[in-house]
Amino acid sequence: MQFQNEIKSNEVIVFADASLYSKDSIFKCLYWYGDKFHTNVSFADSGTYRVSLKPISTNQLSNLELELLLQKLERDLIDFNLRDIVTKETQNVRDLLIAKAFSNGEFDEMPPGNVSDPVGFNVNKVAND
């Protein structure tokens, strides 16, 4: 089923494919609208989020303002979804990084590759006393 993003009286409504947008990213995005808008997330169908914004103030927004708001929300949803991908994909490396930063070198990785020469230098044979 196809949903169309729309402006409805004083409300902006955007649909997001749940297989492409994470729930986290939608809430992180809406967080930034919470001071000026009533935000709402629901399912339009089992595979689609319905995201809506309604101004808290009773002043009616102009058509232009609503149009811009819709654009901004659409773009922000995309941005926050991308951010969310980065956050999730990199969580483990980030944890590792911070653990390393507050250690004293005891978790250091082995260096990559070898340092031998054609004659056969072996770095591990250099005594460490």
């Binding site: 490396v93 990084l97 930063a101 250091d108 260096p111 990559p112």
Partner: peptide, 15 residues
Amino acid sequence: ELIPPLIDVLATRYR
């Protein structure tokens, strides 16, 4: 690579 080769350098910089 999954763990970047210079992660320990990055960790030092973080510190």
